[in-house]
Design a protein around this nucleic acid. Sequence first.
DNA 1: TCTTGACCTCAAGTCGGCTTGAACTCGTAG
DNA 2: CTACGAGTTCAAGCCGACTTGAGGTCAAGA
Lengths: 160, 160
Amino acid sequence: MKDMDIAEVSRRTGVPASTLRYYEEKGLIASIGRRGLRRLFDPAVLERLALIVLGRAGGFALDEISAMLTPDGLPKMDRGRLHAKANELDHTIQRLTAIREALRHAARCPAAQPMECPTFRRAVRLAGAGRFEVAPIGPFKAEAVSVTRRKRQTGDVSLE
Amino acid sequence: MKDMDIAEVSRRTGVPASTLRYYEEKGLIASIGRRGLRRLFDPAVLERLALIVLGRAGGFALDEISAMLTPDGLPKMDRGRLHAKANELDHTIQRLTAIREALRHAARCPAAQPMECPTFRRAVRLAGAGRFEVAPIGPFKAEAVSVTRRKRQTGDVSLE
DNA sequence: TCTTGACCTCAAGTCGGCTTGAACTCGTAG
DNA sequence: CTACGAGTTCAAGCCGACTTGAGGTCAAGA
């Protein structure tokens, strides 16, 4: 397969052209040349984009992702860091699982006030546990920053 | 226990005072009155905040959260919607799990180019699957919006 | 040759969730 | 009585990840 133009890359990855330009600007992908003004991409960019999309889906920031990718293949990251990232994800998963259980329980539980239900409270507690140590997903980025910027107060939500 | 001022609520929940004011402004919490200018909170706000924090940790937007909370206890949401939310979370969890496995595998696998490793490719595929149907976490909010705004191209990353 | 439409650049806008800063108000300890 | 410090308001700023819009370019088909 020959070089592709931006439209084709977009079509084949589902990533909008504007985003592709943005990624190029950020150094996440590179075009291998131009035809006139138009970017030309090597098909290998598809794999790279698959990895980028993967990372984004995992809640990683673009900066983190580019830190994991060499100009060509994958891990510029040592095994240790990869494992660390995996563990991060693991904590997130546990947290989300607890929340899911809380939700399911709330849907099932007869208690009028869910907070009076021990099971629910337990789920809430689990979900909250480690809240501030865990690598935050998405919207928590800002919060994580603020944690380092100004010392966070206590960090645990007491329920009485 | 008596009414608390904002500092105490903050201390006991770990939520910054500025955030508490912001939440009040958004109608997520309410103060029970004032002493002079100062807000007074009923201790019940602690539970409410626990739930809000829970929701945030689950990647829910503030709007969604307030849609789940009655002025007092929890679910204004019917069981169906709670289950739907739980399922949403479930998909997210599956996606994250696949990504975690991809990461772990990348750390372990001897293949120089991880994309040449079938196991890795499989994980990538799994992680990507349903990418655009699934309720997005955090940073994907914007993307989700854009999905509805302008029709997304194909939606699957082909690796040919 | 001319037109067209896909692509380009650059600056600015958007969105959510907060934080920050300036200027002000009070209850309370001294 | 007064000063202090914790609280208040309001507008503005910030961050990440993009999107949008205006105005420009250019390869290829009629």
